[in-house]
Design a binder for these strands. Structure first.
Lengths: 212, 212
DNA sequence: CCAGAATGGATAGTTCTACTGTCCATAATG
DNA sequence: CATTATGGACAGTAGAACTATCCATTCTGG
């Protein structure tokens, strides 16, 4: 297929497809002459994945590029998912040194109590989590961090479900792509369900309270 | 306190504070003369909240403005949280009409089976959730949507915990602010915990798989 | 075969967001 | 009272993600 069809199939404008080619997000088509190329169904699928990662996942294109490179790399599924997680997390926001130290300690205790592996502070997932916990403290919302153990228990249950969803697949390539999609979309889907549930529970708990 | 101190206390540069004042994100200080003003601890707190919403929550300033307006409004806590959720969700990405319809049906069935209220499609939380489910289908990840019921059960448990965290507070203002913070930071914190848990579970389940 | 449309590639321009820098008349301060 | 800070207006900047314009081929329908 050629440019126009690729664009139509994927729903991405021609100019944007060219931009993605320039940026290396989309591999070049197979050349049929020095200045013509042909694209495949794989290109359509990749464009759809890029759209999902940017539109639904909210990732910047630079992160999308890194995620795609990780998918195309030849690491094990487990290691690839680790790389993808680092990209999803993005750079952690800055917080005050004291709050960060407090949050690190809190997290480390939590990990130790539950017999989990220690994670290096350079891990972006950890750095983001620490920043979020530190911010909660700085804003005086200790209640949130007091219940961390209970949140962790539920997060573990969710993660077990996530892995079940991915683990049934046979091909390694499919596992990796499914893992990426499950991680990115899974975050959004779970957040949406949680918000709906909050609305339901809050209607019962707070519904009758007067305006502030 | 005056500008320099406000800036130092909050960690936000003077030029940025002025910008937030222009944009109406920060209320003007109390004038002490036609062209001088004094700021209070409330201004510091508000700046910290803005920082948390943008840096940790990843919200655009326009949404931050809407959230702050909702906080300052005089709706009930429940309604205010509804407004905040709408802002957090942001505009839903576009998906194909077929996939969207399929996803809407899936969600509606789920809600009905569990005896939940029906939500209007204009609700941004719902629209985003539908878009995410539709995208999962378009990418061929039906496994994710097959387990929606189980995710919903866990999301409900998380939401119950969220409300417990907020509900112990006495003042209505505090409930609203705590709710906002719990919603925004809570999403990040839970996502972080989920990622750590995924790493742990995936090490056991996928750790031994060969590279792709 | 050939006129007109499409393609690939290069380069420049646009839009939006979130600041950042510069001025300057007025106020505060040691 | 000399110096420094302030508030307000406005212009400028940086990065991200496209979008538009050219143009020398290449493809395609009659």
């Amino acid at each position: 297929m050629r440019m126009a069809e690729l664009s139509a199939e994927s729903g991405v404008p021609v100019a944007t497809v060219k931009y993605y080619l320039r940026e290396g997000l989309l591999p070049p088509g197979e050349r049929t002459s020095p200045n013509q190329a042909r694209y495949s169904a794989a290109h359509v699928q990749r464009l759809r994945l890029i759209k999902a990662l940017t539109d639904v996942g909210g990732l910047p294109l630079a992160s999308v590029g890194a995620v795609l490179a990780a998918i195309d790399g030849d690491e094990t599924p487990h290691r690839t998912m680790g790389l993808v997680q680092q990209e999803l997390a993005g750079p952690a926001p800055e917080v005050s040194a004291e709050a960060a130290q407090w949050a690190s300690g809190l997290l480390e205790d939590l990990m130790r109590r539950n017999g989990w592996k220690r994670y290096p502070a350079e891990n972006r997932t950890v750095a983001n989590l620490v920043a979020a916990l530190a911010t909660a403290k700085e804003l005086g919302q200790e209640k949130l961090t007091d219940r961390l153990e209970e949140y962790l228990e539920l997060a573990l249950r969710v993660a077990e479900l996530d892995i079940e969803v991915v683990d049934g697949l046979t091909s390694v390539d499919r596992i990796i792509e499914a893992g990426v999609i499950a991680t990115v979309l899974g975050d959004r889907i779970f957040a949406g369900l949680r918000h709906l549930a909050q609305e339901k529970v809050s209607r019962q708990a707070l519904g009758g309270r007067p305006p502030g």
